[in-house]
Nucleic acid binder design. Structure first.
Lengths: 339, 339
DNA sequence: ATGAAAGCGCTAACAG
DNA sequence: CTGTTAGCGCTTTCAT
């Protein structure tokens, strides 16, 4: 049936469309990629033939010939962390309807795994890359610098390689700590799980603020390398109160922890916010619906994702066209009932 | 520098490795894909050359030549729903360290978008596909049936196209409803958001059980097409109690809803479980840490993901080798404090 | 605005 | 076990 085809998946090719439309293959290719430069007449014939044959381009052939794929790599440290599922959604919604596929790599909070993924993704000649931190290994960073595609680093402001979208994580934690102080709490604690570099830096920011007003007490700082979860939040509060029972406020490094702490407080009949204030970080949807509603530093996760993909697509479409290459989306301290 | 190369990204190719190792290109190819069939000596030379040149295969060229890519497509209806983030994790962990990439497609609970994604994914000649339902459009189903790669349908048992991993969703809901009845609750309600086909069927199962023991009351069934969230869970309970204040138990179609209902009960000083029982569905980590701890029908989401990818990889490696093609992973009714 | 020719980097299909 | 020969389906380059 098909004209040649070795062991024929008789899927139509560019050449099939070309001969059906009575033009050359390259005209079909151009009709698809930049319809503007093809004559009205040719375009119509080609589009008709594409529809009739049910042609879909082969991305592998395209990537091979053009040395660039339609893949956009997205490197995240975790698939379960709600923070990143919001980012994902922003990215996916923005990529929707374009010719690009998003491919997620999960490096599980390991810079070494991240480096491996950078290598793997780069070997696919991606159209662009979104990476979730500035904490690459030196080699990882070098690979990104040498990459022949635009790169957006997300979540933070700081020393970015190419472009960045984020907010000042340290200022955000400071805002939370100051909020606690302004509400009159004097013996604040801090709980955090999964002490990745960013979590470490945030803890540092908490120490700075509390030290500056003479409220820093290391006994009130509880961390664990385990992954964050609601259960861990409860445990950490338990341990914190065992070590420093007079703690009157706790800054939680994310919402899971805060919910866990809130539940632990309920279990012990500790009144929030009277006996203990709880301030959360990120502010996923759940936080505002707790009883009492959690005060939180709200971070623009979804918007980070959509802005990152938008910048990337712009830059892919017209290299050098993105002028605002480092975007600070800010954060917001939202006071509710728990403080 | 490089021998030819048009405008040289001077990345080494198979041919470069071959000449460096003093063998032919195909031997290098074989060394990479099936080391077993290459002589010890050739293999060592090739591996040394690969390491020395820093060679990485070009997946596009490989896909084009072999007519099959290293992509595994994973179609999910939502990126935010915690249910699917657990599935994702299972899939990603299982794909870790293989030569396959997972590519996620989000069809946002639209069978039409799903059909589009099936088409798009198929155009990439994926090595395999994992799809999250049995509710394709007729055309979507036809595309899957004709696909030249293995396909695993996940989440449910039922009328699968190729392979499947899941559990009996209807039996799971029935177990929840029966649990409520066995605990002595007589006026059970049901709340659900995002009424996709699966949610509809689960509601049907709830109706069956309650009708069978004369407890079905449509006034106690509250649904909304909006996406599920903790906030919506609260609203739904509020409406439910407005319509049927004597409701003494509520089956929630997922954990977000159950948490929202629990918080709404707390807000209204309704004692759980004495005045109102709450039974959840899925049992994400948070559920067991609530106060009171939520009773739930626990579903094996993570395991579904890891089992699905394992079956797929087996079948890709040796077509026809998977004998147990339809796996039922079961569920578990876990009674805690909320019932 | 359109086309012809020449690969992109790899693997299938034979042969040896 | 190893090599040779042809492409895979598309885009680039250079003409026209």
């Amino acid at each position: 049936m098909a004209r040649k085809s070795r062991a024929g998946s008789n899927r139509p090719t560019l050449a099939d469309v070309a001969s059906a439309a009575g033009v050359s293959a390259i005209t079909v290719s151009r009709t698809i990629r930049s319809p503007g430069i093809v004559s009205e007449k040719a375009r119509r014939k080609v589009q008709e033939a594409i529809a009739r044959l049910g042609y879909t381009p082969d991305p592998a052939a395209s990537a091979l010939a053009s040395r660039s794929s339609s893949t956009i790599g997205l490197l995240v440290p975790s698939l379960t962390n709600n923070v990143f599922s919001d980012v994902l959604r922003g990215v996916y919604d923005g990529a929707q309807g374009t010719r690009f596929f998003v491919q997620i790599g999960n490096y599980r909070y390991s810079a070494l795994e991240e480096e491996g993924l950078i290598r793997t993704f780069l070997s696919q000649r991606p159209a662009g890359l979104i990476v979730s931190s500035m904490d690459q290994t030196p080699e990882g960073r070098r690979l990104l610098q040498a990459a022949p595609c635009p790169i957006v680093q997300i979540m933070e402001t700081g020393d970015a390689i190419d472009m960045s979208v984020g907010f000042d994580q340290l200022a955000a934690v400071r805002a939370g700590a100051r909020h606690l102080r302004d509400r009159g709490y004097r013996r604040p604690g801090f709980i955090s799980a999964r002490m990745d570099p960013r979590a470490q830096r945030r803890l540092g920011a908490f120490r700075d603020v509390t030290a500056a007003c003479g409220q820093l007490d290391e006994a009130r700082i509880l961390t664990t390398p385990q992954p964050s979860s609601v259960g861990i939040g409860g445990h950490l509060l338990e341990q914190l109160l065992a070590r420093a029972p007079d703690t009157d406020a706790v800054m939680c490094n994310n919402d899971d922890l805060a919910v866990g702490a809130l539940m632990e407080a309920a279990r012990r009949h500790i009144k929030v916010p009277d006996q203990l204030a709880i301030c959360s970080y990120n502010d996923i949807e759940m936080a505002r619906h707790m009883v009492p509603a959690l005060s939180a530093v709200a971070t623009p996760r979804r918007e980070i994702g959509s802005r990152a993909i938008a910048m990337l697509l712009d830059e892919i479409g017209a290299p050098g066209s993105v002028t605002e290459r480092h975007v600070d989306l800010g954060f917001e301290m939202i006071a509710r009932e728990s403080t």
